[in-house]
Design a protein around this nucleic acid. Structure first.
Lengths: 120, 120
DNA sequence: CTGCATCCCGCAGGATACTG
DNA sequence: CAGTATCCTGCGGGATGCAG
């Protein structure tokens, strides 16, 4: 069988494939930003909020919860007062960012390229 | 300056950075599927429609138009009857899929992993 | 400091019908 | 075959206020 295909797997193309949901969460508007923010190292709630320009608390919370459930992000809450909560990537989470960061870096560079040369 | 950062660039984190829009289109629900579908080679309109389970004509059209405008996808319409229109990746488009395919492959595998072992 | 609850809105996105 | 037009819905996502 052909091994020349660039994308041999075909599961995602099925509408009911579970990978669709997972992929949707990872590539969601705030999902990619949360993941690459954590790629630099653990961050606290307030740190994430400050780092990611434009996130609302609501969306940050929702995104973090879904990643926790998915096993991509770890939540470490120290029982102190005032509360101290730190978020970090799990091993699986790091596998994602390893693949995600190059994409985002490319997008930044291409956006600059287009902005500079007007792509004409 | 520190070169130890996993993600040294910080543009995307600004709410008004142009890369946000570009990234949003690429990682949109149908955007990633269209791109990786074309990673295997050029496809016709009907081919894309069949390959990508669940796309409506409307969303396929919108996605292709935006990628055309962005310079990621090339539209080749032969003036014959019945019409024959072929879509393919530009060089920039291939740069995207080079980075996108590994992510999708990972998601498929992880989804299977989670489904099999219930991740507990 | 770290959130959750509520209200509200726009737009992504689906279904259907029509056209060159 | 390769689309466009229209209508309609759900939910992504913002703003604000409150709580442990």
């Amino acid at each position: 069988m052909s091994v020349t295909k660039a994308f041999p797997e075909g599961q995602v193309f099925s509408a009911d494939c579970p990978s669709r949901r997972l992929l949707g969460e990872i590539t969601s508007k705030w999902g990619v930003l949360v993941l690459i923010a954590l790629a630099d190292g653990p961050l606290r709630w307030s740190g994430l909020l400050r780092r990611i320009g434009g996130v609302s608390e609501k969306m940050l919370a929702r995104t973090l919860r879904s990643f926790e459930a998915e096993g991509l992000v770890l939540r470490d809450a120290r029982p102190v007062v005032p509360p101290h909560v730190e978020y970090s990537l799990t091993d699986a989470g790091r596998e994602v960012t390893d693949r995600l960061v190059p994409l985002v870096v490319w997008a930044e560079e291409y956006a600059v390229r287009a902005h500079t040369a007007e792509r004409d």
